[in-house]
């Protein structure tokens, strides 16, 4: 289990508890917690609407590979700590992680 800090698109920060579940990804947990994330593609690193910027703790996450790296590479204006939250499994999330939501939100 990890306690993370999530900064929404208005700059408001809240803490969120993420159970160490290897069958669920961070995008799904953020949606469950009520954050408005489009997640059009459902978690196959295709739409980039679940893009987050890792402000703190990026070095404790496994680095992006494969489809995530391909997507991050073609996105315009990404920062060095940007990740696709659909590609981060919850059991890989370190305690104290601080993220900022960046992707398109739904209405």
């Amino acid at each position: 289990m990890a306690t993370i800090t999530v900064e929404d698109r208005n700059g408001e920060r809240k803490t969120l508890t993420i159970p160490a579940n290897s069958k669920q990804n961070l995008m799904e947990s953020l949606k469950e917690a009520g954050y408005r994330i489009l997640a059009t593609c459902g978690g196959i690193a295709l739409c980039a609407t679940c893009l987050i910027e890792v402000l703190q703790g990026a070095e404790q996450l496994p680095g992006p590979t494969g489809a995530e790296l391909d997507m991050l590479d073609i996105l315009p204006h990404t920062a060095s700590g940007d990740r696709l939250s659909c590609q981060l499994w919850n059991n890989q999330i370190p305690d104290g992680l601080t993220i900022r939501l960046k992707g398109d939100e739904h209405s």
Binding site: C47, T49, I74, P76
Partner: peptide, 9 residues
């Protein structure tokens, strides 16, 4: 020509 891939909309 900005070529940053396609996004489903």
């Amino acid at each position: 020509i900005p070529l940053f891939g396609l996004s489903p909309k």
